[in-house]
Design a protein around this nucleic acid. Structure first.
Lengths: 288, 288
DNA sequence: CGCAAAATGAAAGAAAAATAACATTTGACA
DNA sequence: TGTCAAATGTTATTTTTCTTTCATTTTGCG
């Protein structure tokens, strides 16, 4: 009994190719079926073995048989192939060398995270986030629990690209920074919230507060975030479930890195200047 | 008995729109689900009600309920909507958002970072790092400058997988934690250093100090790190040059996430227990 | 023409998914 | 703090889908 694996040894592309190859040498009914499948690859995922059979006018059994003949163990496995295919992110064929067996799936998922984040860079939210970060007078950043540190780093890094960035610690700092100062134009501040499951109660409240005081608000969070849309001016999602004990923070890291870059790109001279200054200062203090 | 029609009165686009509209006003679990669906429209056709439920972490019933609330009578009808949508037009199953032209190369590089990190998971250093983190009695973690926050997060997250983890702030805390206590077995401590270019002078010194006092030392750093090999017991490299204004921290994030996972895998019962406790405590404190 | 081998489908059984009815939990509000 | 309604999950039931086994049909070929 070859092929114990519950996961297919085949890729969808290979399957399709095998199908094309096989058509001429197939028995009549199966050939009809194969033909139909080839012409309807788009909707293949929506079909069930039965529905396919019905559409083509063959019996259900024939469907199963054809699949098995092509090295695909039944409808279930076909669905699996499709899923792998469409979750994008071909895990770079040779790159999985030297990856621990159990981690292969995680790796695929992490790559999926990366592409998912990049795909947002053309969206309207990204656009808005970028210009808010570049043009607002002051930027406040905050993050909670297991991503607080990342948020702090974001503040540090963003400070190298532009000025007036500060980390806000609502709990510890009592939001003193937000005490309304006479003369501050409403609409010139922007708040960045970084939050992941389990979402902090505080995050939502701070976002609301910002809203009420006419501060813009950008939320960077994971794919389950249910509260941000509707409150925030821009929302960026970084998938986090990749099969690990704790949610992955790769997506958040990436999104924030890209945002820093976007801001730097918006003020090329200023950011270059700042970077140089920073290095000079650090050297003076003998930090490195 | 309302709704005789066996064919939906709704189009898929309408459904999606309804979904977007509804998210903010939906109960928590359903909102999470909705959010997930919106971000995974691509593969929606391949999902089954059950699989969706599993991925999001809600019960199957909730899936059915959400759909019905949106005017779509169950999974079957949703599949029907999708079929209509895709059989009609759209040659490609999904209208994928693009990646901004200028970022394509960066994306390639970031994916390269991910695979590079994963490839280390089979190496000897990884092995050593994993067992040190799992078996040492006490773990100290520190990080500098632009990755200090990530290091702090690592400490927080590692604490969910095992005990006796603390963040060490050599500068602020004067290394008081390391004042030698009579009775502490040498060799039972492990230090994790996270450092990237430009390397902190401090990092090297702390590593040396650890060495001298027979503390194990793991260094997580970027591809340029020149000093760690030879001093550290295990070195993990996370590439960082991906063409951005500042170095990317994706690799570091990933490496640290994977390490946490490895530790959790080494003590499955303990880590599960800890996670539950943490959730209970957080709930008690009304953090979320 | 007749026979064997392949192809096909029917029916029954097993597995999975969707649904419905009921129980528990949660959260808002007095 | 207690109460009620909404939200969510559990369990049981029904429906659908997939697969296996076996009988029937078709096809190739001497």
């Amino acid at each position: 009994m070859p092929g114990f694996a519950s996961y297919p040894q085949l890729s969808f592309d290979e399957f399709v190719e095998a199908l094309e190859q096989a058509v001429p040498s197939l028995p009549r009914q199966e050939a009809k079926l194969a033909q139909f499948v080839l012409l309807n690859l788009n909707t293949l995922g929506l079909e069930t073995g039965k529905s396919l059979a019905a559409r083509v006018g063959v019996s259900e059994v024939t469907v199963g048989r054809l699949l098995r003949r092509l090295g695909c163990n039944g409808m279930k496995e076909l669905k699996e192939l499709l899923r792998q295919q469409y979750t994008v992110a071909s895990p770079a064929p040779e790159a999985r060398q030297g990856v621990h067996r159990a981690l292969e799936q995680v790796m695929e998922a992490e790559i999926g995270v990366v592409t998912a984040v990049f795909q947002q860079t053309t969206g309207a939210d990204w656009e808005r986030a970028g210009s808010l970060l570049s043009q607002s007078e002051r930027i406040f950043i905050t993050g909670f629990q297991s991503v607080r540190g990342i948020a702090e780093d974001f503040a540090r890094r963003l400070s190298l690209a532009r000025g007036n960035v500060s980390y806000l610690s609502p709990h510890d700092g009592m939001l003193a920074e937000w005490a309304r100062i006479e003369g501050t134009t409403p609409g010139s501040d922007c708040l960045v919230l970084v939050d992941v499951v389990p979402y902090a109660r505080e995050a939502i409240e701070v976002a609301r507060l910002a809203r009420e005081e006419e501060r813009a608000c950008i939320v960077v969070s994971d794919e389950y975030c249910h509260w941000s849309r509707g409150i925030a001016d821009a929302v960026i999602y970084a998938p986090s479930r990749t099969g690990l004990f704790l949610e992955s923070t790769v997506g958040i890291s990436l999104a924030l890195s890209l945002l820093v870059d976007a801001v730097a790109a918006a003020h090329p001279e200023e950011s270059r200047e700042r970077l140089l200054q920073w290095k000079a200062h650090a050297k003076r203090l003998r930090i490195f």
